[in-house]
Design a protein around this nucleic acid. Sequence first.
DNA 1: AAAATCAATTGATATATGTCAACCCGTCAG
DNA 2: CTGACGGGTTGACATATATCAATTGATTTT
Lengths: 232, 232
Amino acid sequence: MPDSEYRDIRKLDLFAQMADDNFTSLMRGAYVQNFPAQIELITEGEPSDFLHIVISGSVDLFSTWNGRETSMATVRPISTFILAATIKDAPYLMSARTLEKSRIALIPSQDVRAIFDADNNFARAIVTELAQCYRSVIKSQKDLKLRTSLERLANYLLRQQRHAGGGAAFELDFEKRRLASVLGMTPENLSRAFKGLQPYGVSVTGTRVSIDNQADLERFAKPNPLIDDFST
Amino acid sequence: MPDSEYRDIRKLDLFAQMADDNFTSLMRGAYVQNFPAQIELITEGEPSDFLHIVISGSVDLFSTWNGRETSMATVRPISTFILAATIKDAPYLMSARTLEKSRIALIPSQDVRAIFDADNNFARAIVTELAQCYRSVIKSQKDLKLRTSLERLANYLLRQQRHAGGGAAFELDFEKRRLASVLGMTPENLSRAFKGLQPYGVSVTGTRVSIDNQADLERFAKPNPLIDDFST
DNA sequence: AAAATCAATTGATATATGTCAACCCGTCAG
DNA sequence: CTGACGGGTTGACATATATCAATTGATTTT
């Protein structure tokens, strides 16, 4: 692993405070691999052998049941996924596939658990990370249960806009079919939802979105920090 | 606080392994109170001043947005809630109200965070607890996104049946209107869903449910451990 | 360039779910 | 006893969302 990657991983909240020895030892056991797009990295139900870190590219976390599939989240550099399964030594609840060519570090789960037992700072960082993950899913759950698909899209656009810097025009960072799945609707319905937001000043061309009437859209979307803020 | 309660709380996974001194110190700062039914204990958005422990009774965790309300979970003795907010020192994402007369212990959040910093066993227990909570919400999310309301009800009944000991007949432990909210549907729709399960051998009288054709119902519900098992 | 592919869109239609109003039936207070 | 209340149910209807089939448009392959 190049030094720059090593340092980038070290900077993650999860690893920043742990003892040098322990971090080095974790990394010594790690594999780093380049994967092409559309490779299934893990399959739900399997034992959690590795903690994964996305170094570059992006990864889709999804789940299936009875022939249906839904996208649960997208992981972008640099962050980890499958932490809860690793810590609990329990089966993966979600599958993961690369969305594009991606570079992934794999840390054996038993190493993570061993260092977790030995390094208190690491253990604390894991608590913070898990609490963050937990709260994110709760927010997503509220989004799903309290809003219609049109409202979910409107709020997603506002979040994405802010994430992109706040300008009136920005790019979707999803393929639309996957955005639909993340938002809990069909691609057809997403197309119609975009049209449904036209009266509020939303226009779309390809992946480029432009919000022409910020106030109108916000009045409709009613964004709420307890659902839409990433940080809290 | 009576000794028996003290010991029951001590037995919780969250507190079982921590040092005696630290547990005692946590409990010394705790308030224990009896609340009548339908009291709002906490309101989403407020700072998380206390970690709550339900000693007896039951508590509904719910959220609201734009005049709508949805039930997120029910907490039954003996367990804690609002752990993630306490640890992150972040606002509550959910509100909580008593469903019946309930006895609740309140531990000041800053005490929890202080002991969390001082007691490694406690910190580890928190990790396990949070990982568990996180995985529960993920399962619930999968349930919501991958299943229709009829399928959610069918699987809920199977879970509840197992929880009640596995016999063909058992009691719902929810008021139906709240069950509807937990399952993400309206009370009217729940009524119809129960009827929709009659062909699979489900009959309901009041809160008593009887599953007359286990195999048929399971064939329809297709329960899956990665969604429906509590433990994993 | 022609053909093949695939995401995105559109229209027609079906299904799922929500809403509203009415009613039933227990419980409880007067 | 009686009337008010509240949860649950039912029917009629409205809306939201999914499904299916066809088309478009862009991109890649041959």
